Computed example of a mutant assay.
Amino acid sequence: MKENHNRPRVYDAVLGGQENAPPGAVVLGGLEGVKRRLANPIIEQKIAALEEALKYGEAGLELVIWALEDRLWKVRHTAYSLLASRPEPIVQEILQQYSHKIDRYDAFVAMARAGGMSDIDTLMDNLEHDRNSATCKLIDFTLGLVNTHEGQDRIRHYLFNGTHIQRNYAALYFKRRGITDILREAVNRGCIDRVQAFSK
């Protein structure tokens, strides 16, 4: 009788959402499950996946190293923390290269001063996905440091196309600079209300 290698065995992992999982199978299993959760925009899912990744040897270690480049600071910080206890010299060398990206204040200030499109995107992503008061205050402060034309254009993009919180902080940026024509346009388009735009 020919063996079917594609048929799941009882101890195989099953990706979440599949029906007819064998009894006792682990759902969302294996490295593929970790990769899927790392691609998830929900920050808690990404962090849980990182914590599991190191169970999968070199391949999992590589995923955690890649996460040092994640746009979300909390994910980068988790990856850095997980790698900090690793004894491998190559891991310690990589951590030295990334240490400047882990101090959130310095990293965000550097992005704001660079003021490129991807810098603004990263700041706005962190605002959207990490809505605690410390993050909101830091983003508010660092957006105020943006002085490039490219950065200002990108903040304008978020004023008209961002989520609710991103539009609010983009409006604050233009309000503090007294750029009222953009604010009036945003009010007219229904992106923000008059109070957000013009209250003292």
Results as ranks from 00 to 15, higher is better:
residue 1 M to T: 09
residue 3 E to D: 13
residue 10 V to I: 12
residue 13 A to T: 13
residue 14 V to H: 07
residue 14 V to Q: 10
residue 17 G to P: 00
residue 18 Q to W: 06
residue 19 E to D: 07
residue 20 N to Y: 12
residue 26 V to D: 09
residue 26 V to A: 09
residue 27 V to Q: 15
residue 29 G to S: 05
residue 30 G to I: 03
residue 31 L to F: 02
residue 31 L to G: 10
residue 42 I to W: 11
residue 44 E to Q: 14
residue 49 A to L: 03
residue 49 A to P: 05
residue 52 E to G: 08
residue 56 Y to I: 06
residue 68 L to N: 10
residue 70 D to F: 09
residue 71 R to Q: 10
residue 73 W to V: 05
residue 75 V to P: 00
residue 76 R to L: 02
residue 78 T to I: 02
residue 79 A to Y: 02
residue 79 A to F: 02
residue 80 Y to K: 07
residue 85 S to F: 01
residue 87 P to S: 08
residue 88 E to R: 11
residue 93 E to G: 15
residue 98 Y to K: 14
residue 103 D to S: 09
residue 106 D to W: 10
residue 107 A to R: 08
residue 110 A to V: 07
residue 112 A to P: 03
residue 113 R to N: 09
residue 113 R to G: 04
residue 114 A to E: 01
residue 115 G to L: 04
residue 121 D to S: 12
residue 122 T to G: 07
residue 124 M to G: 04
residue 126 N to F: 00
residue 129 H to Q: 11
residue 130 D to I: 07
residue 130 D to H: 05
residue 133 S to G: 06
residue 134 A to F: 12
residue 139 I to Q: 04
residue 140 D to A: 07
residue 142 T to P: 00
residue 143 L to W: 00
residue 144 G to H: 01
residue 149 H to S: 13
residue 149 H to V: 15
residue 152 Q to G: 14
residue 154 R to I: 05
residue 156 R to Q: 14
residue 156 R to D: 13
residue 157 H to M: 07
residue 157 H to L: 05
residue 158 Y to W: 06
residue 160 F to G: 10
residue 160 F to W: 00
residue 163 T to E: 11
residue 163 T to Y: 11
residue 166 Q to P: 03
residue 168 N to Q: 15
residue 169 Y to I: 03
residue 173 Y to D: 04
residue 173 Y to S: 06
residue 174 F to I: 00
residue 177 R to H: 04
residue 177 R to A: 04
residue 180 T to L: 13
residue 183 L to K: 02
residue 183 L to S: 06
residue 186 A to K: 05
residue 188 N to P: 09
residue 189 R to G: 09
residue 189 R to L: 08
residue 192 I to P: 02
residue 194 R to K: 12
residue 194 R to A: 15
residue 198 F to V: 01
residue 199 S to L: 05
residue 200 K to F: 11
